[in-house]
Nucleic acid binder design. Structure first.
Lengths: 336, 336
DNA sequence: TCGCCTCATGTTAGCGCTAACATTAAACCA
DNA sequence: TGGTTTAATGTTAGCGCTAACATGAGGCGA
């Protein structure tokens, strides 16, 4: 009851208060304070109350850096994405972080910017923080990156694809099949001159291969492939470079919408249904926008947040299936 | 020249190799290895080469957790955003991380999900990792959060707004003025029945006040304010709840585009210029999409990535102006 | 030749915490 | 009653690294 106020708090004078300062103030040993923080059930209620009061008095905030070193558990996961801005990967980061934060894990975020050297640097930087797992979009671009991850002896989750020889766990979908599905649909619609626009990153390329192979398998001419620079704002101009095509698969919704904008300028966009479109456009990602614009965008819907949540689960559970195919859906609307 | 291969690498057998294992293999003391990692210039070239070889042999990855504890420098910054998915805050995170990663800082990311209690928990979680600075969107929602940050004695950067009494530094713009600018423009266009749609978070509310005050100051009726749930997919339905309005300011581009979709269904959207629109629509954020859809979206353009970069600079430089107004621009296109 | 400086490397102690193993007192039981 | 369990707390050592302060060898000017 009587709190022995020997010192009214070191206050925000000097450095942050430590466990042992709290311990001294509460008249217990530091390990008892540590227990109050981590396993309060092991401490008698009165002692606990005294310690909690001391923590409040001093404004104690546990130092997880020291705790991590002592316990060899950092309670953090490293997350590597190509980019976080304007990208569907943000959904994945949100999904995994929603799952991990309540469990006391922190997310250390790094961006590779689609640059293999930077990716390796970021992987090394992440690993030097000793995360308990690494979740990344795609697979390491270099042998060196792969080696780093293999030697780390922690759960590694590759996402957004289904690599043939994963390092450890996988949560993604089959990008090749996505390309196939789009081509199949366009062929069924009677389209003849197909084209693919998008980047040349591994996943985009896999989509392209599926798209092309299926077109060829159906007796169509080899589709054109337009590799757009990442900054190539929405590929508005792409249409000029693709005369005569009657169907386009864009590697993401932003490119698709940009392309549609080019079509509109050329008078080749209708507000009617897919069958009325001179040029069919299919995107990938299923942004919220896709169903709000006119004509509504047909697209391959992938569950970015589910990928994140699944990846989080895979980092936490070491056993069970380590290769989760979250699939995709071809959502047909008015654009193609 | 002759590398004395006493032990061909502990290999990926047991735990990660430590500084002193590298030291033993290279025949130096651990501090020398530490120097090779951190200040290579202080080490003689031959010694350095020997140490580097040992590091390679063992696959040594420095343990920054231990280094941080010993040096009291974590080389990390905590970043708190309301949400990262589908949000313009992703630009800010990208901006700051692009600036900080090359300097060896890691980004620890946390989401508050617009929840004050979660925000406080996340702030405490971030601080327990002893970041060297905290960058957050907005200001702490609670007194407790504020106190935590004030006591942390590290640079704190509040962004996306210009709070009257910032904790430390600020990089943002005046949300109130943004609302004023939009109302002013709509009034000049001859619009009479204004409405505001968006969330009721602090920044959205500030925009609303500016918007309302300016409308009233111009003799218009008090604008309607429709508070949308965050999940309220694009506010397609909002139009039904706002009959008779002839101008709408949406707190973000997604809401604006959703509202336009509702207008289109109601036959109230033209492909012509702003003057031809029965209902003017202005967004905020200037997503890439804004200029690709039809009609193109008029919007308040804010520089999310510049906010991030500026925030990063403010964490690194303790002196100089600590309140940076990045401004905004009213970008007029065809929607209003 | 001596004192002094510089360069390269080493020694020592400790960052703030936790794992693992005491220790003590009370509770329990046959 | 004495041994054994259980609950509550403490002691000790050390996680892997770095700051701060030695140490020693060689260079160098007078």
């Amino acid at each position: 009851m009587s709190s022995e106020v020997t010192d009214p708090g070191t206050g925000p004078t000097g450095a942050a208060p430590t466990l042992s300062e709290v311990a001294k103030r509460a008249g217990v040993s530091s390990i008892t304070v540590s227990r109050v923080v981590r396993m309060p059930d092991l401490v008698a209620p009165e002692t606990r109350a005294r310690v909690e009061q001391a923590m409040r008095d001093l404004g104690y905030i546990p130092n997880l850096v020291a705790g991590a070193l002592a316990s060899a558990r950092t309670n953090s996961v490293g997350v590597l994405v190509p980019t976080i801005a304007n990208s569907i990967f943000a959904d994945t980061v949100q999904g995994l972080s929603d799952k991990l934060e309540p469990l006391g894990f922190s997310v250390i975020l790094a961006q590779s910017r689609y640059d293999a050297a930077r990716e390796d640097r970021m992987l090394a930087a992440l690993l030097s923080r000793r995360p308990e797992a690494i979740i990344m979009v795609g697979s390491p671009a270099t042998e060196e990156g792969s080696r780093l991850l293999r030697n780390a002896r922690i759960p590694i989750v590759e996402t957004w694809d289904l690599p043939a020889n994963p390092i450890d766990a996988v949560a993604g979908f089959d990008n090749y099949k996505a390309g196939v599905a789009v081509a199949k649909h366009l062929v069924a619609q009677g389209r003849k001159q197909l084209a693919f626009i998008g980047g040349d990153d591994p996943r985009g390329t896999r989509r392209w291969f599926g798209f092309r192979d299926e077109a060829l398998a159906n007796g169509l001419a080899e589709p054109r492939r337009l590799i757009l620079d990442r900054k190539d704002s929405g590929s508005v101009a792409a249409h000029a470079r693709l005369p005569d095509v009657d169907a386009v698969f864009a590697a993401n919704d932003a490119h698709a919408i940009g392309f549609m904008s080019g079509l509109r300028k050329a008078g080749l966009l209708r507000d009617g249904p897919a069958s009325a479109q001179p040029v069919a456009v299919i995107g990938l990602g299923d942004l919220e926008m896709a169903r709000l614009i006119s004509p509504t965008l047909s697209t391959i819907s992938v569950h970015g947040d589910a990928i994140g949540r699944t990846a989080a689960t895979l980092t936490l559970e070491r056993d069970g299936e380590r290769r989760i195919d979250l699939g995709f859906e071809l959502v047909l609307r008015d654009s193609g």
